[in-house]
Amino acid sequence: MTLNKRKTEERIFKFLMMASTVIVTGSLLVIIGTIVVKSLPALRLTMLTQTPKGGYYLGKEGGILNAIVGSLYLASGATLLAVLVSLPIVLYLNLYTKKASALATFTRFSLDVLWGIPSIVYGAFGFIVMMTLGLRASLLAGIFIVGLLELPIMARAMDEVIRLIPQALIDASYSLGATKLETALKVIVKQSLPGILTAVLIAFGRGIGDAASVIFTAGFTDSIPTSLLQPAATLPLAIFYQLGSPLLEVQQRAYASAAILTLIILAISLISRVLIKKFTRHTIR
């Protein structure tokens, strides 16, 4: 090939690469833009402050407060559950087991597997567990399944940050006479706090946005749940059901709900970015 041809080939591919990058980044802007623009006719404050009037499927009045509150309850509970399970696991993996031990390898491997399992399968599994236990669709069941769904996401993200802590820092803590537990809580958790918080937020974001796992487990209702055993509405399902309505007004409400969910996700992502910036100043690099 002559130099000119080689250069032309490079130019063509560079153009394709830039075009691809524009497509990828552009799709985010187009998605958010479309949702926001389409939601404007229905986006009113009452969407945030009222529960649906006349049923979520046909009602044109009221809001989606039931779904917002339901989603917040559900995602908060699930995230709490996931933290309580995944933080000890990650600490145990990094502090008590050797890197190549069978338990550590098997657990990390299981987390990888769980991470790849689609949320609809979590939903189906939750359904089986509920049937076995004789539970009905409820906030509790939803929290349980979404918590499990968040577990691998959170644990893997935490593991990635905690693995980076220099061994010297851990050794220094031991040599001051600290037990493993004290080292875990006072050195490791403190040192990797921004990373841990980011992991928590990422998992929360996934939890609040997932629909396939809650269809079976959390159910849906027009009212705000007052106990863990009542079914709970969630934002993603509210969007899904509203969109399925034959009424144009209700469909528009789906767009507005989607805009609200998107804003929540954007806010979470923004907060985690700010957190990282703020905290990383205080940690040892």
Partner: peptide, 12 residues
């Protein structure tokens, strides 16, 4: 893009 919920993709 990775964080956007799948229902939102659906609506879009």
């Amino acid at each position: 893009l990775a964080g956007i919920p799948s229902v939102v993709y659906g609506v879009w």
